[in-house]
Design a protein around this nucleic acid. Structure first.
Lengths: 159, 159
DNA sequence: TGAATGACTGTACAAACTGCCCAGCATCGC
DNA sequence: GCGATGCTGGGCAGTTTGTACAGTCATTCA
């Protein structure tokens, strides 16, 4: 169920140069086009590759401020809180975590001032007891998956 | 510098059905192909769309456990800590946040037991004073950008 | 050992798409 | 009014895709 070396190289190649097609990828990897197609199909149907959607930069959209908010939820209000947060566009993702019935969400805002508006909207809901926010200053390691893919491919090869 | 309604619809369309080409997109949006091409070029060169890399699911790669770790850093050790974390494949992203010289990072692991190994590796570095980890149980709102895009497009239209 | 299975290669063909070009037209700001 | 900008609609050559098929090779299994 893991990925082998060829899968790994294919994913890394696509991550680095998404514009190339199946044919070009097969040339780069030194395998037949059909092989790349079959691998891609398998990676997608097995869920390893979810899709190739556009990676949108919130900053360029006009939302340069990112923050993480930890929310403390009133017992039994989980579903309501989720629905509420789901309706806030500035909430980019939401996780429930171990601990005191807590949630962690990623927020963006147009400015530090605007962040206050977003937080007010997020927190202004009955099921939320308390919120603590950490504003992101720098992003030394932007979201990446390549090292993990290489690790997974290596583990497979070794196995 | 924002995006207009057509940009918004284009991004949403591509997010929903990434496989379609420029021609098909132009048909769906009811505009000329050249228009879609020009919009796409502009969105990419302006940085709104960073790329179309494969979206890899760590779970399907064999890393079903996600956690967020808050790290307290010793003064002046920031750069070293970043370099250290950059070298750990299981660290998917790293942010520096407001507060006590803190950092927040997203981790994945092969299991809860494996998470201990990852945390040990992350924390086993001199510049890190203390770490607090929250394991993700559920992900009610997976990372999404569409609502924000629609919001941004709407704001632009209104403006 | 021999047969079966699965994966990869190399090739082929029609259909579709891309990249690029251009002329015409409407809108917007100066 | 004039230029700049953006959209339309069309065309063309080159490339890629989707799909198929036969041959090869390594591994699995009886």
């Amino acid at each position: 169920m893991g990925i082998d070396d060829l899968d790994g190289r294919l994913i890394v190649l696509l991550a680095r140069e998404p514009r190339i097609g199946v044919l070009e990828a097969s040339r780069r990897l030194g395998v037949a086009r059909g092989t790349v197609q079959a691998r891609l199909d398998r990676l997608q149907s097995s869920g390893v590759i979810r899709g190739f959607g556009p990676q949108v930069d919130p900053t360029a959209l006009g939302y340069p401020v990112t923050a993480f908010a930890t929310l403390e939820i009133k017992q039994g209000q989980g579903a309501d809180v989720r629905a509420h947060l789901d309706g806030v566009p500035e909430v980019l993702e939401l996780h429930t975590t171990t601990g005191h019935g807590d949630m962690l969400c990623r927020l963006v805002a147009r400015s530090n001032a605007d962040l206050q508006r977003v937080i007010d909207r997020v927190v202004g809901f009955d099921g939320i007891v308390r919120a603590s926010t950490a504003i992101v200053m720098e992003n030394p390691v932007p979201f990446r998956i390549i090292p993990l893919v290489e690790q997974a491919a290596e583990d497979d090869t070794r196995a």
